[in-house]
């Protein structure tokens, strides 16, 4: 289990040597620093906390500064935890660079999806809406029935409907690493990644590879 934090740069296309083209997402990943090591004995589970992206000291609170000082790492904007099977092999202040991953490896990428606001059922769940013709009015994007009547007398919890869409944590599994360049802090994965360009993403070894 390996992981790194990064910022989504955008999508482009890469040609391989045979001339085939692949859609890839470019991620500016790392360098990350280990800011805390959590062990089964002391914390109840194994994990490392990693920080990413240097930032001016005035942008952080005293609590954050003190925490980072303990690990003797630069001032970092983001701090995230990565659960591990074992904390062994990681020490405070360790640097994680893009080359923790190799080309061809499968990874899961987690990000915060683009927010769509309060969306109707047609956009959010792919409801078909009502008929467009035959005398319909105000029914074109209606969700239809939400359930039976007097019995049971209420809408079942979890029924699909309108509501907040996007702006939520999303993980895309099993994306192939297409390109790694530790010098430029670059990782490119084949396929799309949640969130807007410049959004924070977490890249981890695929859980279900």
């Amino acid at each position: 289990m390996k992981g790194i934090l990064g910022r989504k740069v955008g999508m482009t296309q890469l040609f391989d040597d045979s001339g085939a083209v692949a859609p890839v997402t470019v991620i500016e990943a790392g360098p990350c620093y280990v800011t805390q090591v959590k062990a089964e004995d002391s914390d109840g589970y194994n994990a490392i906390q990693v920080g990413f992206e240097e930032v001016a000291e005035r942008k952080l609170t005293r609590g954050q500064l003190g925490h980072l000082k303990k690990a003797n790492v630069p001032k970092l904007r983001f701090v995230r935890e990565l659960r591990l099977p074992s904390e062994a092999g990681h020490a405070l202040g360790d640097v994680i660079k893009a080359d923790v991953f190799a080309e061809g490896e499968l990874v899961d990428v987690t990000g915060t999806s683009k927010g769509k606001g309060f969306a109707g059922g047609v956009k959010r769940h792919g409801f078909r809406g009502g008929p467009k013709t035959h005398g319909q009015s105000d029914r074109h994007r209606a969700p239809g029935s939400r359930g039976a009547g007097t019995t049971p007398g209420h809408t079942f919890p979890g029924t699909k409907g309108a509501g907040q869409m996007g702006n939520k944590r999303v993980t895309v599994q099993n994306l192939k690493v297409a390109l790694v360049d530790a010098e430029r802090n670059l990782i490119a994965v084949q396929g799309a990644v949640p969130g807007p360009n410049k959004g924070l993403v977490i890249i981890r070894t695929a859980a279900k590879a």
Binding site: V9, L14, V26, E28
Partner: peptide, 11 residues
């Protein structure tokens, strides 16, 4: 716009 993207421009 991004230097990283520009560096990936094919030949």
């Amino acid at each position: 716009t991004n230097a990283l993207m520009a560096s990936l421009q094919p030949e």
